[in-house]
Write a protein that binds this DNA or RNA. Structure first.
Length: 115
DNA sequence: AGTTTGACGCCTA
DNA sequence: ATAGGCGCCAAAC
């Protein structure tokens, strides 16, 4: 699925690129990433891309949650507690698989990177 | 080649 | 507030 043409950059690669830009201590949602990539209705693709995120390096997958601030992807980490542990290590409070103050630490690429 | 399934989001009842 | 349906695109069956 590699492409030699720059015209259509891999969707996966683009997702990883955005995720890498998420500042420490901040989080974003699948929908926000999809919207930033120009596919507002394709949040599922972001999720699919994240499925293979662990194969990439420098991709803080724990900073990507669903629009409710729920750690929906925690099952895909090494251990069921890995995700929240990583988040808490960055100063993000997690309560019952949900990010506390989600609205405050939310980082929207389409806004933060609009310039 | 048709069907099912996602680490989702949004609208409607 | 909760539940269910549809959309959207790619990969696995």
């Amino acid at each position: 699925m590699l492409s030699i043409n720059d015209k259509h950059i891999d969707f996966f690669q683009s997702v990883y690129d955005v995720v890498r830009l998420i500042p420490e201590g901040r989080v974003t949602s699948y929908g926000a990433i999809a919207r930033y990539l120009g596919a507002p209705r394709s949040s599922r693709m972001v999720g699919w891309a994240m499925n293979a995120a662990h194969t990439q390096s420098g991709v803080p997958a724990q900073r990507v949650v669903n629009r409710n601030g729920l750690l929906t992807g925690k099952a895909h980490f090494s251990t069921p507690t890995q995700m929240e542990e990583l988040l808490e290590a960055e100063g993000i409070q997690v309560k019952d698989d949900r990010i506390v103050n989600f609205k405050e630490i939310f980082w929207d690429p389409s806004i933060e990177l609009e310039l």
